[in-house]
């Protein structure tokens, strides 16, 4: 990169940094730690891990053509035993393209976002498919109770999810359906929320999240924005395990 270009990037970074807010005053850090530690036992590791889960937003009634896409990478034969954080969809609305695919720094999660070309997915009204796959057990530090919950007690796991979603969205209308995806227990969460009427898709948002217990402590979440319920389910149904190397290649071939 040319010197002028480097300088331009530095100037942009400087302009961004100039907007940095002052750091939070943690002069009472010891007290904060005490409080934080005190409340920690009440919050199970699983709930903590679930806190990062996204439940996506969709608009009711959007009709989207589904195409059976050729798999973007070579697909390994999949079964419950192959549950992995490395899974990719074989079905996707044909106007969405892969914008981000990544392995999280902790190594226990992957994420993929499919967006309309040129969109960020951050703006209300954007059509988005997010696929987050977590190794919940690893994230929770191998906690046996979590392992039992994730692998042996779907109903209890889904109850945690239901409660966490209710806590997170007290003002939303929520419906929960226990369904089966690829023969595995899954929870479908639908969330209806009144939003700014000036958004491109009107005053109502509907969130669809399909959370699947994939086995071996792996939980996949297909979260969609402005995607019909049957399409969201079809995408979750199409998730197929791939090798870590193939997923890595997938991330390198994204636009």
């Amino acid at each position: 990169m040319k010197t002028d270009d480097k300088q331009a990037i530095r100037e942009v970074l400087a302009s961004m940094i100039a907007e940095a807010p002052p750091p939070t005053d943690f002069s009472n850090l010891t007290e904060i730690q005490v409080v934080h530690t005190a409340i920690r036992p009440r919050r199970s590791p699983l709930v903590a891990a679930l806190a990062g889960f996204a439940v996506a937003v969709a608009v009711i009634g959007s009709v989207i053509a589904i195409t059976q896409r050729p798999a973007p990478v070579s697909i390994s034969p999949g079964s419950g035993a192959d549950a992995s954080i490395f899974m990719v969809p074989g079905v996707m609305p044909d106007d969405l393209e892969l914008a981000v695919a990544d392995i999280w720094t902790d190594g226990f999660s992957t994420m993929q976002s499919f967006l309309l070309p040129g969109r960020t997915g951050w703006v209300e009204g954007d059509r988005v498919v997010n696929i987050n796959i977590n190794n919940m057990v690893e994230q929770a530090g191998g906690d046996v109770a979590v392992l039992d919950l994730v692998t042996g007690d779907p109903e209890a796991f889904f109850e945690v999810l239901r409660q966490q979603t209710k806590d997170s969205y007290p003002d939303s209308q929520l419906t929960f359906d226990e369904i089966t995806v690829r023969g595995r227990p899954a929870l479908l969460v639908e969330r209806t929320t009144t939003v700014d009427p000036n958004t491109p898709n009107g005053p109502i948002d509907v969130a669809i999240g399909v959370i699947v217990l994939e086995g071996n402590g792996i939980v996949s979440e297909t979260g969609t924005h402005q995607i019909a319920r049957d399409v969201a389910i079809a995408i979750a149904e199409s998730l197929t395990p791939v090798t870590a190397e193939d997923f890595e290649a997938y991330t390198t071939t994204q636009p």
């Binding site: 806190a51 990062g52 889960f53 996204a54 439940v55 996506a56 937003v57 990544d102 999280w104 720094t105 902790d106 994420m111 951050w122 703006v123 209300e124 997010n130 987050n132 997170s168 929320t193 939003v195 969130a207 979260g223």
Partner: peptide, 17 residues
């Protein structure tokens, strides 16, 4: 890591939007 979690976290999505 927190920034990445934050970005995918739906809880704050509305605030961000």
């Amino acid at each position: 890591n927190e920034a990445r979690n934050f970005r995918r976290g739906e809880t704050r999505r509305h605030d961000r939007e």
